[in-house]
């Protein structure tokens, strides 16, 4: 148990950096043969986890496709209520954040802690903007106009009896995605705090940065599919 975070015997820190979380002080868990093996294992684990996330969203995409086939008019009517400009802005914001988080990984690999922190902060600002736009310009006005899911639907000018179903799919799809944005942001905050406090990431220790960034790319990727399906095609 105590050996899981064993200090690295090979690299000894010098000077003021004596905290065990400082990247040069980090070792690897005792059941791995070396740090590379641990890094590979963590990355494989993360990719497997991402595949489960994709399958989770696959259920929503599948429901979208089936009901789109059954009720094309409802889908066309529903998607007219979405403003592509907000969706497009959010797409740009997420793409930008994917770029900055990738730059953050690069900064960690190069041992440039200041650049890592800078990139993470920009990414987090993008995450905040995304959620803000989603809530303030989309969810709240739509819900107050009665465009709510299922039986809560009370919008008086609906064109098609199956429009409530469209809104159910819209809120579930984008809602679960937004939840993932928040989880991803939480992971990045965790990385940021450790980068600021302990300078925890560097050329030999960036697993956490890389895996959180992978998660963030997944969040981006799912939005890339949600955006055209919901906003662009009718």
């Amino acid at each position: 148990m105590a050996t899981i975070d064993a200090p690295n015997p090979d690299i000894q820190a010098t000077g003021a950096q004596t905290h065990p979380l400082y990247w040069k002080n980090r070792g690897f868990a005792h059941h791995f043969r070396n740090a590379d093996e641990q890094f590979d294992a963590c990355k494989l684990g993360m990719w497997l986890f991402l595949s489960t996330e994709i399958l989770l969203f696959a259920g929503i995409f599948c429901a979208y496709a089936i009901f789109r086939m059954l009720y094309p008019e409802a889908w066309a009517a529903g998607s007219h209520h979405l403003d592509w400009r907000f969706g497009g802005l959010n797409t740009v914001i997420l793409l930008l954040s994917s770029w900055t988080v990738a730059s953050g990984v690069r900064a960690a690999q190069l041992g440039n802690n200041a650049a890592l922190i800078r990139n993470l902060v920009i990414t987090l600002i993008c995450a905040g903007l995304f959620v803000f736009i989603k809530l303030y310009f989309e969810y709240i006005p739509k819900l107050s106009a009665g465009k709510a899911p299922g039986t809560f639907f009370s919008y008086p000018y609906a064109h098609d009896p199956h429009e409530p179903l469209w809104w159910s799919i819209y809120y579930i799809g984008t809602g679960i995605h937004a939840l993932h944005v928040l989880i991803g942001a939480g992971l990045l905050i965790w990385v940021l705090v450790r980068a600021i406090r302990y300078e925890a990431y560097g050329p030999t220790e960036y697993t956490m940065v890389e895996n959180s960034a992978l998660y963030w790319h997944l969040v981006d990727l799912i939005w890339i599919f949600l955006f055209p399906l919901l906003y662009l095609i009718h």
């Binding site: 429901a63 009901f67 899911p149 299922g150 039986t151 409530p164 159910s168 799919i169 579930i172």
Partner: peptide
């Protein structure tokens, strides 16, 4: 919880 209607 919300009667979203996907299975209804």
């Amino acid at each position: 919880l919300f009667k979203v209607g996907i299975f209804d």
